[in-house]
Design a protein around this nucleic acid. Structure first.
Lengths: 259, 259
DNA sequence: TAGTGGTCTAGACCACTTA
DNA sequence: AAGTGGTCTAGACCACTAG
């Protein structure tokens, strides 16, 4: 069965050329052309792709253009190159799969999404929060609890501890959805240089049932975050709890259908 | 506070040059140089980076080399470019965060990891499995249950439904860890063209407590997969259940410390 | 009109692999 | 020695944006 396919498919050979008048750049056309050939089975995982010079003369484009196309295939994990040997089609790797929080972004961009501030307080840091934020136990920090709703329905519960800077008053707008939305799409003022994120599976606790209007023991995601300023000091530590039935992450490995 | 920093930092100016004798390619040196300048606060989110021609003359490298460096910054989501306007530093976006299954890969590459086949059967497809695998209800398919252990400790429970091809006997080796390991690092024979993955939060069911030696109701991840062959037909559908206390995904957004 | 990024050329030299 | 990928040059032309 496998052999039969391997023998049959190459007969449906495509002899496409690069269209120099297309709006689509030559290097992109080449990327898609090679992807299609892989998808059709003309090149199988492990097979060697034509060398750069072969592709140059075959499609009448310069080495740099071929190079660029191949680099794209390589960082899409579709091919690997090794100097002196050649470029080879990779087989699909689960290890290369990545789940994007972009799916979460949609929640935040939704116009029906609102943020309800449940609580804002200045509190003394305890041992744990002090350690996370790099301040001494007992120092004043800001504690915020938010509830994110889509329409009437709560789906995210957010707790956050922030460095308290007496010189910088807590601005109302920072507490609203805008600050969270900015974090997701990058339009915020962004005092942050970097953030560490962490996703765990968890279950809804009794406290969370109240605000999320759901049942104790149901599955949930816990997305923890620490954000650092440009001096590498932590300024925000907190986490989102999201009902498991409201969120899932999806992705694809292997050849995508982008043509 | 913010203004003060902005005024103070640029005085610590770095005047590094590209070292043409370095093992590190010029374009990579430029990438890291710009990253460092961003990390130091010389360029803040929203700021415009020097134009390509400025970078060319500043560092005495050709336009293509500058271009390459900038493209890297762009697809690392550190900068955005728009034609006619310039290249700008982005603020960090949660939406660009990605969680990699590479962390899972470590489990599979571990030498202590073993696979115990709990069950292999030819079964008739029911309505649901038939739909997933694209066969009629009642047609014969393969059903496999595996348990993955690290040392003595079970951490993954895997159920899989496979297309049954009478012409291709079930090879013993395919049932062992090798086939799963190959899926993760790409060394397998890989009949698959692509796979769709899906992660949900869930809780351990009664059946799963038996094999995973844990308690009902504890949090867990459920990683579902469908793999397609080169003709785009589904050939495998299944899912992994992993104890929530054994697995977490981590990632970083913003400027990485790669220099 | 001047400046920006986006693409592309037609080579060159190097490092590595294989025979 | 021949073939491969990896890097880089010194320009060119284009499309877009802004004053």
């Amino acid at each position: 069965m496998k052999m039969e396919k391997k023998r049959r498919l190459p007969t449906t050979e495509v002899l496409m050329e690069i269209d120099r008048n297309s709006y689509e750049p030559a290097y992109m056309q080449l990327v898609n052309l090679i992807k299609q050939q892989i998808a059709m089975g003309m090149f199988r995982p492990g097979d060697q792709l034509p060398s750069e010079s072969q592709l140059c003369s075959r499609y009448h484009i310069s080495p740099m253009t071929v190079r660029r196309a191949i680099n794209i295939l390589i960082d899409q994990k579709i091919a690997t190159a090794s100097q002196g040997k050649g470029t080879f089609v990779t087989s699909i790797k689960l290890g290369s799969a990545a789940f994007h929080l972009k799916e979460l972004q949609d929640f935040f961009m939704d116009k029906n999404t609102t943020v309800k501030i449940l609580e804002v307080r200045i509190v003394p840091a305890n041992k744990r929060t002090g350690k996370k934020l790099g301040v001494k136990s007992g120092e004043a920090i800001i504690y915020i609890r938010r509830l994110l709703l889509q329409g009437e329905e709560p789906f995210f519960y957010h707790k956050e501890y922030l460095i308290y800077d007496p010189a910088r008053p807590i601005v109302e707008s920072e507490l609203e959805v805008t600050s969270l939305r900015g974090l997701f799409n990058g339009t915020g003022s962004s005092e942050f240089k970097k953030g560490d994120l962490n996703i765990e599976a968890t279950v809804i606790t009794r406290e969370e049932t109240q605000v999320l209007k759901t049942q104790e023991g149901l599955p949930a995601f816990r997305i923890e975050h620490i954000f650092y300023d440009f001096a590498e000091n932590p300024v925000s530590w907190g986490w989102f709890i999201c009902r498991g039935d409201k969120l899932r992450f999806t992705t694809t490995v292997g050849i995508q259908e982008t043509f």
